[in-house]
Design a protein around this nucleic acid. Sequence first.
DNA 1: CTGAAAGCGCTAACAC
DNA 2: GTGTTAGCGCTTTCAG
Lengths: 349, 349
Amino acid sequence: MSTDLPHTSGAPTLEDVARLAGVSRATVSRVINGIRNVAPDIQEAVHRAIAATGYVPNRAARSLVTRRTGAVALVVSGAGDAEGGEPFESRVFADPFFGRVAGGVVGYLRPRGIHPVLMLADSAQTRDDVVSFLRQGSADGALVVSTHGEDPLPKLLVDAGLPAVLWARPARPIPISYVDLAHRAGAALAADRLVARGCRRVATISGPFDVPAAQDRLSGFQEAMAGHGHPYVPAVEGDFMPASGEAGMHRLIKEHPDIDGVFVANDLMAQGALLALRDLGRRVPEDIAVIGFDDSAAVTCRPPLTTVRQPMEDMAAEMARLLLAHAADPDFQVTSVIMRPTLVVRESA
Amino acid sequence: MSTDLPHTSGAPTLEDVARLAGVSRATVSRVINGIRNVAPDIQEAVHRAIAATGYVPNRAARSLVTRRTGAVALVVSGAGDAEGGEPFESRVFADPFFGRVAGGVVGYLRPRGIHPVLMLADSAQTRDDVVSFLRQGSADGALVVSTHGEDPLPKLLVDAGLPAVLWARPARPIPISYVDLAHRAGAALAADRLVARGCRRVATISGPFDVPAAQDRLSGFQEAMAGHGHPYVPAVEGDFMPASGEAGMHRLIKEHPDIDGVFVANDLMAQGALLALRDLGRRVPEDIAVIGFDDSAAVTCRPPLTTVRQPMEDMAAEMARLLLAHAADPDFQVTSVIMRPTLVVRESA
DNA sequence: CTGAAAGCGCTAACAC
DNA sequence: GTGTTAGCGCTTTCAG
């Protein structure tokens, strides 16, 4: 309870401000939207009136005429047909990967006054919800992060003519902008390091084969190792979760007891692999060197993990930048931005 | 210009649907909003017209008249004056705690057609942004999760008369609804377990003293131990991050080499503590039993962590429920919901 | 049970 | 430079 001035019913409107400043609504609108051609003294008066009334423009009204909301959908899209376990929501948001992407998006959007709306798309129903949401004009576009290779959402978005930008190249090509990492180059960084350290019997724990990024990391690694004169690299498949890294490491050591270096396709699995190595009594990096990928869980590993860093925040920010460009200009060219990974050397290799 | 087909410029509007169904806009609106008193055959015709045009109601227009958006702000509020390190965005969203809360919120909101808008408030400026956002009518209320005890945001919200619900009791009492956990009871669960296991020399690693929940967990633990005949419990303060758990454990062992049980105020620190114990050559739980709190990182610990589970998803859902109630009815009573923790026994104690 | 009409609060031509 | 005038697309009395 504080208002004493505008004694109309609800919140102050443009009308109230205009009346108090002794000008028209249009002029107030001009001042608020920073349009020039307004006499300094009038601007002054308007600003005073705004402050006096505590006026805040109504977003719906503005949106109705400008046809843009200051929002974008941040959608995490996945299978959702999860075999038991926790609900999709918890699994996905608890992943440090999502957290960093969200952080990068917010970091870019916030200074620009745009807000991300969190959405989950894990079924035909919820994918349609995303499309409807955008068609309703509830957001100006969508940033989509798919956890699965064959996600149908990107195509739905393209077909509906809605602005959208993807995290990572889609499994099958569609005309949509995306931001990705040079996975093969990153894997090569790991191979180079392992070889430079003197590792002779190197293996790898890959991500799930149906994820393009996992394939790229695997083939990029094998190729780089071949280039170093190691045509055969034992590999086991994981699912990017810690437990699979642990299991994978056990299997690798069992089948190839003499390996002295391993490239693990992400840090979460590397964390599990390190645990396994510890249980097996192998010292890292003395007995076996380990390199992860992502730089997402590296510091909480023991020993601290040498890893290939994926600049997730920068990539997410780039997605946001592209989306805003698409939203502002429907004719903006579809593009892909591929960012470079770097090797972060800690103690494990 | 205007043909008779829905070949107007942009997206189909109510008008288009009405014309095609041969009724008035009002009737279509009634059908869409599920208002009875519409003849079945007319409903039928309207639905057909909707399908034929691919009509989707415009959110801004609806919002303008109903004065409600289908959105709520999900704000993470903190100090932000962080000493170096990563930006607030990344730190906060990468925390599994945030992920689970977001998951719980989305799980509750999604079936109800409400969408959470992600916001960060870590400075006077950004706190005002949150208030403005709500005053603009961009969201119907705010769900706020403070990372700091003395967060000014809740009071700003209350003073502005905006619907809001907090995660956890605010440091100083203000008339606002919140959802919290019975931290003392949870700590007692840990104390009981440790004592029942036969631990005689028990210590604790607490959270930062300026966080009410940390204080409650500490005093609740001390009190419960006192009840078991252990009036003195060595304690060191951590900051809820893994590194502080590790450091705290080292300090504890150094100052009290004979302890055989420790209660760590959250799982992240417990993870660090476990690492320290491993380095020190102490077996868990044989030499020393460890109990964490939250059940957030418990499974990736080695050994799997016995911990006090905080039902974060349920708590977050409850926050959302309360917020919607407040938003729907301005006279809805301010309430607090305190949920019960449970002990999850794994291997560490 | 259905239609006509009046706005919700704002921006954007178009006048002056 | 500034005011006037139309709507943006929808819900909601109020008649009938």
